[in-house]
Simulated scan of single mutants.
Amino acid sequence: METTRALGDHSAHPAHHLPVSTVGILQNTLLPSLSLHSSLSLVAYTAARVTKRVELKDWLWPSGLVANAWYNAVVHPSFSENIPISSALSNLSWPQKLLLGGVTVWGTRLFYRIASRSVRRGKDDPRYDGVKQESGFWNKAFFTVFLPEAVFQAVIGLGWSVPFTTGAAGAVTSPPLDYAGLLRGLAVGLFTAGLGMEVLADAQIEHQKKQSDDLCRSGVWSIVRHPNYLGDALVHASFAVLAYASGIFHPVSVLGPVANYAFLRFVGGDKENEATQESRYKSQNPSKYAQLEDWRQKKNSFWPSVKEAANPWTWALVAIGGAGIVVESGLRRYLRA
């Protein structure tokens, strides 16, 4: 049985450890992240204004969060400790490497999905057609649209910036040693199941669009109305579970997945998506609008109902999560051999 110390590798980045107080952690993680995301948001806003495409802020969402992870995990310690980038990367503990890899894989896949869809469409996302008609939209858009999302991104980034920046020195609680391995497996399972749900949701809806103009209601879309958002929430939750299992957890980092969930549910996720769908379908596609109304009565928006335990697609995702656990375990043993 591995100990929490072995899992967390408390020696990682010894010179990079920072004060464990909540105020100290926020000063050294949240403030730099706010600066990073605000700067990137200004660049995205400028490009969006020039091209008249608000959706460029969506390109920034995954790429900015990946940049945040690499800055906190590798770039900042490299400069602060005056060591090569490669050394900063190799100094990461296995859980930190797993965390960095997870954020990178999630963000890269999402960026490709958003960017490729945008390029194929050749024009702005229809979700933003309405807001662009508002008087003086572009003059206030940085402060009303782009900057608020930068703040959300900075808080979401706490899910990994705290474990990267403080490591074991910032940990205030750890699981019993007997459960550390189980919790790490749970984290890996949540990540792979969530990522798998996102990939399947995107692939299935693209296939549906090629077949007919009906609402996508099969595959993982038969579990909830917005499986891609649920998958995203599972991915971000897995980061907090991994940090706790590895002895590099501070409660502040929980703000990351909580902020991500809040954004997906109440700001720019399923709430915004369905409001746009309802308005568009009602005026342009009454048949699809009727399907949406019917689907609302049958399926939950975000969290599955209890009856989805009998849905074969639910078990397919469980199997994907299990496969991820097996692969991670084998890779960890091989690299440590």
Rank of each mutant, 00 (worst) to 15 (best):
T4Y: 14
G8Q: 04
G8F: 05
H13G: 03
H13M: 02
H17S: 15
P19T: 14
T22Y: 15
T22V: 15
V23P: 15
I25A: 10
Q27T: 14
N28P: 07
L31C: 02
L31M: 09
S33T: 08
L34V: 08
L36R: 07
H37D: 05
H37R: 05
L40F: 08
D58Y: 15
W59P: 11
P62E: 09
P62Q: 13
G64Y: 08
G64H: 08
N68K: 05
A69F: 01
H76F: 03
I83H: 05
S86I: 01
S86F: 02
S86H: 02
S90I: 06
W94Q: 08
K97F: 03
L99Y: 00
L100Y: 12
G102S: 13
V103Q: 00
V105M: 08
G107W: 13
T108Y: 12
T108S: 12
R109P: 09
L110C: 09
G122A: 06
D124Q: 08
D124L: 07
D125E: 09
D129C: 06
K132I: 15
E134Q: 15
W138N: 02
A141E: 12
A141D: 07
F146M: 06
L147R: 04
E149L: 14
A150I: 02
V151G: 10
Q153C: 10
Q153Y: 10
G157D: 10
W160Q: 00
S161C: 11
P163G: 11
P163N: 09
T166A: 11
G167P: 11
A169H: 14
T173K: 06
D178K: 11
L183M: 05
A187I: 02
V188E: 00
G189S: 00
L195I: 01
G196S: 03
E206C: 12
D214R: 06
D214C: 05
C216W: 03
R217T: 07
W221T: 03
S222Y: 01
I223L: 09
V224F: 10
H226P: 14
P227E: 06
N228V: 13
Y229F: 15
L230C: 08
L230V: 06
H236G: 13
A237D: 03
S238E: 02
F239I: 03
I248A: 04
F249L: 06
H250M: 06
V254I: 14
V254K: 04
P257L: 07
V258F: 09
N260Q: 14
Y261D: 05
A262G: 10
L264V: 01
R265I: 08
V267E: 01
Q277L: 15
E278H: 03
Y281Q: 05
K282V: 00
N285D: 05
S287M: 05
K288V: 05
Y289H: 14
A290K: 12
L292D: 02
D294P: 08
P304V: 11
P304W: 13
T314F: 15
W315H: 12
A316S: 11
A319E: 04
G321V: 01
V326W: 13
S329R: 04
S329T: 07
S329V: 01
L331I: 11
R332H: 07
R332D: 01
R333T: 12
R333C: 10
A337V: 06
